[in-house]
């Protein structure tokens, strides 16, 4: 329960921290930390404009995507507490729930019949298809060395092996979760949310026609996704057995650091060329493979 609430709190401040980081690094005064949430308030109060081409899918897609993300957050554990819902293979459910939301977001983009919607839709579908193996290989690695197959069990036994090699997984896991989060959320270096040319957009171009309440919901879903991946990162670097108050503080610290990392990446990195993205994403899977090979060596299966 605490974990769920913490994720919601983290999601609340997450975009603001990214924004602040970017303002500071670019030497601007910039908006306050709560500006993105205020923007959402503005959007909720606004009316909506719907395209005359769009239909029911366009109307329900944002809600479906947010529900998927919300329910996905229920399986994420925190500290030594089990997640609200935990069962063997819950990360499969987690991944497919997020995919469910993506399915509808993609359809909504095609529903507008615009020439840009399809562009973003196919890129999003394509890239998230490529990133799927990385996530599963990483979780397979975790399942292999802890011997458990649910988020709660994996993370509560993560540091129990007592060996130092677990740090390898902390580092690789942290790195991969950052990368997967960036791709799933369509941030740099795969996609630039601040680009203003439709041809180079991925996620933004899909939601061009959303307005008002729906747009607010889409943004909320994106913030929530960041916080969810942030808490996955937290779980691979902080042992579950520590004091709960210390953990709460560390959790928020990790989320802040994650947000700052994103802000820094977005300030100093250029976006990939679009046709290099598949290679970039497949590299992430390759790194996950390396993690798997390492576990084979460490468990004396290989060599």
């Amino acid at each position: 329960m605490i974990g769920f609430v913490l994720i919601l709190i983290a999601a609340f401040f997450f975009p603001g921290i990214i924004l602040r980081t970017k303002s500071i690094t670019s030497g601007r005064k910039g908006p306050g930390i709560l500006q993105p949430i205020k923007d959402i308030g503005v959007l909720v109060r606004k009316g909506s404009v719907f395209s005359k081409t769009s239909g029911i899918i366009f109307q329900i897609a944002p809600v479906v995507a947010l529900s998927g993300t919300l329910c996905a957050s229920l399986v994420i554990p925190f500290a030594n507490q089990r997640a609200l819902i935990s069962f063997e293979g819950d990360f499969i459910f987690f991944s497919y729930l997020l995919a469910f939301g993506k399915f509808f977001t993609i359809l909504a983009a095609l529903d507008t019949g615009s020439s840009f919607g399809g562009m973003g839709a196919n890129r999003e579908a394509f890239f998230s298809m490529l990133v799927e193996p990385a996530f599963f290989i990483l979780l397979a690695t975790f399942a292999m060395f802890t011997g458990f197959t649910s988020f709660s069990d994996i993370f509560s036994h993560f540091f129990l092996t007592g060996d130092h090699y677990v740090l390898i997984y902390s580092i690789i896991g942290f790195y991969l979760f950052v990368q997967i989060a960036m791709i799933e959320n369509s941030r740099l270096p795969v996609d630039d949310p601040k680009t203003h040319l439709e041809l180079t957009m991925i996620h933004e171009v899909m939601i061009l026609d959303n307005s008002g309440f729906d747009k607010a919901i889409i943004h909320l879903g994106s913030y929530l996704k960041f916080a969810i991946y942030g808490s996955l990162m937290y779980n691979v670097i902080v042992p579950a057995g520590w004091n709960i108050f210390l953990q709460t503080g560390l959790f928020l610290a990790v989320q802040v650091v994650f947000a700052i990392i994103i802000g820094l990446i977005e300030s100093f990195r250029a976006r990939n060329k679009m046709n290099l993205n598949p290679k970039f994403i497949l590299t992430i899977s390759a790194i996950a493979w390396i993690a798997f090979v390492v576990i084979l060596i460490l468990t004396n299966k290989l060599i």
């Binding site: 909506s48 719907f50 081409t53 769009s54 507008t112 615009s114």
Partner: peptide, 13 residues
């Protein structure tokens, strides 16, 4: 929620 707001229909962007 949408019932209380102004809903417009326009062309796709």
């Amino acid at each position: 929620h949408l019932k209380t707001k102004q809903i417009d229909v326009g062309p796709t962007w």
